[in-house]
Nucleic acid binder design. Structure first.
Length: 425
RNA sequence: GGAGAGAUGGCAGAGUGGUUGAAUGCGGCGGUCUUGAAAACCGUUAAGGAUGUAAGUCCUUCCGGGGUUCGAAUCCCUGUCUCUCCGCCA
């Protein structure tokens, strides 16, 4: 969340930042609550100091045989006042928290200002050698290919669970598993990440820490009986590993990579772009998470994007990198690159990765700090994460880009040792 | 799921109503001593907030929340977590 002190000291900056993010301006409301809060604190602190003094005196007076009844009576009144003011203070602080927890991060100065995805900026594009956007045969889409090759069974997935729950069969299941293992190994061996296998259900505090709650609760699955949420991304459990902790500066940067199934309700998005893998309730994703020192976070973001791109280059999948404009940034992000892979059948780019720097927005919510060796003081870390990558959209691109005129699918070379076969069909 | 025990500073571990933000030990940091190191000795060792240019002063915090009391680490209620036993189980 945003820092109350920062808002107090930079009201104009925050106001403009929220405006650029198409968000409600909360500045004046928060500032007036903050003033109320501080005046209440001054009053209660004064009364509490008085009470503490009396508490120290009372036993001595008793020892000296003095009558304590007048002091006790007076302190009774003081205590009542404290209780009253503390109640008011708690209300004000709750109000502030409610607003701040529901207020998005503001964008970094290097992010282009824009209203919507229309104004995102293409940073770069990468195409495999010999790649062409035109095919000299009729390309099948991933749903047709999946059916023909008996590797994806969306109908039976729907029977088992409902629409949006893909069923991978035979070589499709193997390919999916190969992809996950390939990506994990790649990041571990070449990019220096440490592996995490996180829990797939997380509690409310964790969801609040990374910013899914309270704003996006409707998009989350929820197990009411146990007050637990199936993870929408491994970002949630992995970032929350260090919730309420202070890390030694020498341990930074911490770089984790982990796989999780991802569960999203995608409320209200039926119909549009919902064919096959394009929008699903459950998918697989390998996620990279970094905890870094503030001054390095923007360099780390560039490296993070590169780490995701390396996977696509190894798989020889055409992609482009978009720098999101302020209006398209997610709730918690200060800067974000999307990576989109090419789908020849849809004839468009599909988002397969999102790499974000949250600066200290999540760290503040989740209270993740490090001890600055120079000042000896705890400071908030910066957190980043990026998909590296989501298999569902990637699977679309692999199947469609690697199909042959005969309707078979060649397994990308990098995956072959993981699948144990080099062609499907 | 049933029964019981517990949760204190970086760690270990005292503390059952009144200068206890918290003894003691270990660890960490600084210093004395030493050619250097160890040992020994001395000192220091939390986080958050309010106020102040600052030094400082004050407030809060002994798992979370509520209560009793002039006053709670300490008493009561409640939640969470951990451990032990029983049951169930991949």
């Amino acid at each position: 969340m945003l820092d109350l002190k920062f808002i107090r000291e930079n009201p104009g900056l925050v106001r403009q930042g929220l405006l650029n993010k198409n968000s409600r301006d909360i500045v004046s409301e928060v500032l007036s609550l903050d003033e109320e809060r501080r005046s209440l604190i001054i009053k209660t602190d004064e009364l509490k100091a008085k009470r503490n003094q009396a508490s120290a005196q009372i036993p001595q007076m008793k020892k000296a045989g003095q009558d304590t009844n007048p002091v006790l009576a007076e302190m009774k009144l003081v205590s009542d006042q404290i209780a009253e003011l503390d109640g008011q203070l708690r209300d004000v602080e709750n109000k502030i928290d409610t607003i701040l927890f529901a207020t998005p991060n503001v964008a970094h100065s290097s992010v282009p200002v824009g209203r919507s995805s229309e104004e995102n900026v293409e940073a770069r594009k990468w195409l495999p050698e010999g790649f062409s956007f035109k095919n000299d045969f009729k390309v099948l889409d991933h749903v047709e290919l999946g059916k023909k090759l008996k590797i994806l069974d969306f109908e039976r997935g729907t029977k088992i669970s409902g629409s949006g729950f893909p069923l991978y069969t035979d070589k499709g299941a193997t390919l999916e598993r190969a992809l996950i293992n390939f990506m994990l190994d790649f990041h571990l061996q070449r990019h220096g990440y440490k592996e995490i296998f996180p829990p797939f259900l997380v509690n409310r505090d964790s969801m609040k820490g990374t910013g899914q709650l309270p704003k996006m609760e409707d998009d989350m699955y929820f197990i009411e009986k146990d007050d637990l949420f199936p993870v929408p991304t491994a970002e949630v459990p992995i970032t929350n590993i260090y919730r309420n902790e202070i890390l030694p500066e020498s341990e930074l940067p911490v770089k984790y990579v982990g796989y999780s199934a991802c569960f999203r309700r995608e409320a209200g998005s039926y119909g549009k772009e919902s064919k096959g893998f394009l929008r699903v309730h459950q998918f697989n994703k390998v996620e990279m998470v970094k905890f870094v020192k503030p001054e390095t976070s923007y360099d780390e973001l560039e490296k993070l994007v590169k780490d995701a791109e390396d996977i696509l280059q190894a798989l020889q999948i055409p992609y482009r990198v978009l720098l999101l404009c302020t209006g398209d940034l997610s709730f918690s992000a200060a800067k974000c690159y999307d990576i989109e892979t090419w789908s020849p059948a849809e004839n468009k780019w599909l988002e397969a990765s999102s790499c974000s720097n949250f600066e200290n927005f999540q760290a503040r919510r989740a209270n993740i700090r490090f001890r600055n060796e120079a000042t000896k003081k705890p400071e908030f870390v910066h957190t980043l994460n990026g998909s590296g990558l989501a298999t569902s959209r990637l699977m679309v691109s692999i199947l469609e880009n690697y199909q042959t005129p005969e309707g078979k699918v060649i397994v990308p070379k990098a995956l072959q040792k993981y699948t144990g076969f080099d062609v499907i069909g």
